[in-house]
Design a protein around this nucleic acid. Sequence first.
DNA 1: AACCACCGCAACCGCGGAATG
DNA 2: ACATTCCGCGGTTGCGGTGGT
Length: 329
Amino acid sequence: MGRSPCCDDKDLKKGPWSEEEDQKLTNFIRTHGHGSWRALPRLAGLNRCGKSCRLRWTNYLRPDIKRGRFTEEEENLIINSHKCLGNKWSAIAQRLPGRTDNEIKNYWNTHLRKKLLNMGIDPVTHQPRTDVNVLRSLNQLLMNPNTGGLGDNALRLQVDVTQLARMQLLQSLVQALSNNVNAPPPINFGAMNPPMGLAPLAQNQQAYDDVLQRIGGLVNNTVPDFGVSSQPLNDLQTVVNAANIGFDVKDINITNEVGASPEIVNGKEHVDAINDDFRCGNPSIYSQFETWDTLNFDVQYNDQYYIMDQYSQPDTCLGGDTISYDLET
DNA sequence: AACCACCGCAACCGCGGAATG
DNA sequence: ACATTCCGCGGTTGCGGTGGT
């Protein structure tokens, strides 16, 4: 019931589109718009069903479609969006101008899924994989003499396992902190880097990069609720303490470059009530977080203060969107 | 050169829900 | 309120290209 008989006609052509068909479809839509997809094929002189025409147009012929390889930024955006939205390809596509849901879906299934699996991350939950197969392969690598037995690989694996345990501990910790129903959602750490040294940032490029990456990782994999209290700040500090990164979060604020007047909440500058309420899991307000919002972190490290700026994607923004950051003393 | 396996991608299929009568 | 039509979405398929043997 309620099903379209659209493609029942056995005389309708299926399969790859010819250049002539593409031309007919493009010309018709440029002149008349697509209107009713069902009526379009007849009006345009095409022996196709409306559904096939719509698909060909939206996935291939549309003039604003971006071709070519996905950039690293696009990859990150897809992964971050997938973390929050799951397989909502059309919703994800809205955040990548010029990319179609079909293209993103294909790219996910052929590249990104495997990439995450290779990184030991479950592409469904975006959590570190702890399933039997992973443990088995870890065990095999540890025992296999061809991989050096207890050589470099084994040591690296030990570090991985330690990191895994550390992450699970941290996640449990934050979970416990979030028992209050009014508390923000638990923070998802994603993959963590090995602990950094404590050398002064300015004299240690690696440490500097690690802090950037660690903060980026924390925020990037977090969709913090910057709600009407300073609770998220407390939570982030808790995380920072637990992760033993070695700096103090002094302030968090969001500024907005698209016209909203910042307001002060508990001494913190916020964009507005809607943005403050922004959180993962409520797609209806995703679009409220505007273009080029900036997330600022003031941090203290070895008695020095740093200002961390994180810029969102140049589109609507999900929490955790990050493409670049600057560190200023 | 021939065969095979794998991969990437365009296109199809079927479902759910909104719109319409 | 109900039946029917239409659209959009996510899952799946199958073809063509490519690389390995």
